[in-house]
């Protein structure tokens, strides 16, 4: 187990493995996203209250879910990097930030578009929206702090610490709909209760969430490979990669 972990931590080994694994994430991701889109837009019945407008849920909920999951992934990678000084962990955390920021932006934008017909406003200052907005700023802060250092090693460690401190925001987002009973509706999916939607509405949503996760895995691998190449530039194994040298 530990040798496997150490081996994965070595950049050339990771580079080789991830190149082989990437399609196994990307292809199912595309299939599931296509399936979920068709299922969400055509196969699932319209909502009895919201009509067809609810269909944006198939983009909004997975994006919001990923916004938090990517942050936790980033913070865990950052913690591993700080504790074990693992280069690959820092590269992963750095690769996570723009992806997470993109998902967060997507969640905020689709939520805003959904809010306009449902609530009559583009934006409402309730707990859920505000805390997701804070999440977006945390991603921006992470990227800004990392790039502010001239020494990339220092930048990595400083930004990693910031990512760990920012984790306090995650439970606030998660429970904000329970603490403040405002416009935003409670969680769509809950482990403790039976889902509040029918099966033919739920199935495309679950397919979309799994599709988003696989998409994140695929994009993360591409980005970490890029980070590894950038960080190890000049290393011998990279020169051996290109046959022309």
């Amino acid at each position: 187990m530990w040798t496997w972990f150490h081996k994965l931590g070595s950049p050339p080994h990771f580079y080789r493995i991830s190149g082989r694994l990437m399609p196994w994430f990307a292809v199912p991701a595309l299939v599931l996203l296509a399936l979920g889109t068709v299922g969400g837009l055509w196969w699932s019945p319209p909502d009895y209250q919201q009509g067809d407008a609810f269909r944006i849920i198939y983009v909004h909920v997975p994006a919001a879910y990923m916004a938090m999951m990517v942050y936790v992934t980033m913070a865990v990678a950052a913690a591993i990097g700080i504790v074990w000084r693992m280069k690959l962990a820092f590269a992963s955390a750095a690769a996570c930030a723009p992806i997470g920021a993109a998902f967060t932006f997507l969640a905020l934008a689709t939520g805003s578009i959904w809010g306009r017909p449902m609530w009559g406003v583009w934006w409402d200052w309730d707990g859920r929206m505000t805390s997701v907005l804070v999440l977006f700023f945390l991603y921006l802060g992470f990227m800004a702090l990392r790039s502010a250092f001239e020494d990339p090693v220092k930048g990595d460690r400083a930004a990693a610490l910031l990512a760990i401190v920012g984790v306090v925001n995650i439970p606030i987002i998660k429970f904000s709909v329970d603490w403040w009973n405002t416009l935003h509706q409670p969680a769509t999916l809950s482990r403790l209760q039976a889902p509040a939607m029918t099966g033919d509405m739920l199935a495309p949503l679950l397919v979309m969430i799994v599709g988003y996760m696989l998409l994140f895995g695929a994009i993360l691998m591409v980005r970490v490979r890029g980070e590894v190449l950038l960080r190890e530039q000049g290393a011998r194994w990279i020169r051996e990669l290109s046959p022309g040298g």
């Binding site: 505000t130 804070v134 700023f137 945390l138 921006l140 802060g141 800004a144 702090l145 502010a148 250092f149 220092k154 400083a158 610490l161 910031l162 401190v165 920012g166 306090v168 925001n169 606030i172």
Partner: peptide, 22 residues
């Protein structure tokens, strides 16, 4: 975090204000 940076003061707001919202 920004103590070692020459232009750290500009970053401070971005780092502190989101956490100070509550």
């Amino acid at each position: 975090l920004t103590a070692g940076l020459r232009r750290g003061a500009a970053l401070l707001g971005l780092l502190v204000l989101p956490l100070a919202l509550p």
